[in-house]
């Protein structure tokens, strides 16, 4: 494996990036890595851009990931994916939720939301490893929009297993599910397990 694996998570406030990065750092620990996580919180309002950093490795020093140093970009919203594209290293893995959340600067400010073509073209310049996941649609089918973040984690878990990032390390679905179970309210455990599996299947099906 690489010395350290860098994840950058991004999305819009209220989408559940905090839970997702909490799960991710604890999966790293449970799998036997040293792991650190960093995020900025404080503003309660929903709706601003948010990002958080997770690192796994034999020994992790910096809690944050610099520009062009993310091995994995996990984006919960398309515009935010594009905003953080420069964090991804060339050839890194991008997992992008196809959800669109229109910012006010577009609704009442006259700015333009980037088209799918622009987004695809930009990522194609950086890496061939891009997965677009219909997290919102899958979550809706499961009956709860809020689990889109866990759908994305499921997709990420399947991609990590398939890719060479984790060669030699065993971070299996069981580890993920155990951590997720510990971190969501008891009455939502089943739903979140389903969301995680649905995310995995979305990746495995298309392989």
């Amino acid at each position: 494996m690489n010395e350290v694996i860098n994840f950058l998570l991004c999305g819009v406030g209220g989408q559940g990036t905090v839970l997702a990065s909490d799960v991710l750092v604890n999966v790293g620990l449970a799998a036997g890595f040293d792991a650190k996580q960093a995020e900025v919180h404080g503003m309660s309002q929903r709706g601003g851009s948010v990002s958080s950093h997770v690192r796994w490795g034999r020994e992790v020093h910096s809690p944050i990931v610099g520009l062009g140093e993310a091995d994995v970009l996990l984006a919960f919203e398309k515009l935010e994916a594009l905003r953080n594209i420069k964090s991804l290293r060339s050839g890194g893995v991008a997992v992008i939720n196809t959800q669109v959340i229109v910012p006010l600067t577009v609704t009442s400010g006259g700015q333009k939301y980037p088209s799918d073509e622009e987004i695809h073209a930009a990522f194609a310049q950086v890496t061939p490893h891009v997965r677009y996941i219909e997290g919102e649609k899958i979550a809706e089918e499961l009956g709860n929009l809020r689990v889109a973040n866990v759908v994305l984690l499921g997709a990420l878990s399947a991609l990590l297993e398939a890719g060479d990032l984790l060669a030699g390390m065993n971070v299996d679905a069981g580890t993920w599910l155990k951590v997720i179970t510990e971190r969501v309210p008891p009455k939502h455990v089943e739903l979140n397990k389903k969301a995680f599996q649905a995310g995995r299947e979305a990746v495995l099906k298309s392989n």
Binding site: V12, G13, M43, S44, Q45, R46, G47, G48, S49, L67, G68, E69, L79, E80, L82, R83, I85, K86, L88, R89, S90, P103, L104, T105, V106, G109, Q111, K112, Y113, P114, E118, A122, F123, Q125, V126, T127
Partner: peptide, 19 residues
């Protein structure tokens, strides 16, 4: 490592807003 420099246009900002 050469940081990627994809060509992208200006993106709409997403400042925090009143809920």
């Amino acid at each position: 490592e050469a940081a990627p420099a994809p060509q992208i246009g200006a993106l709409p900002a997403r400042p925090p807003v009143l809920c």
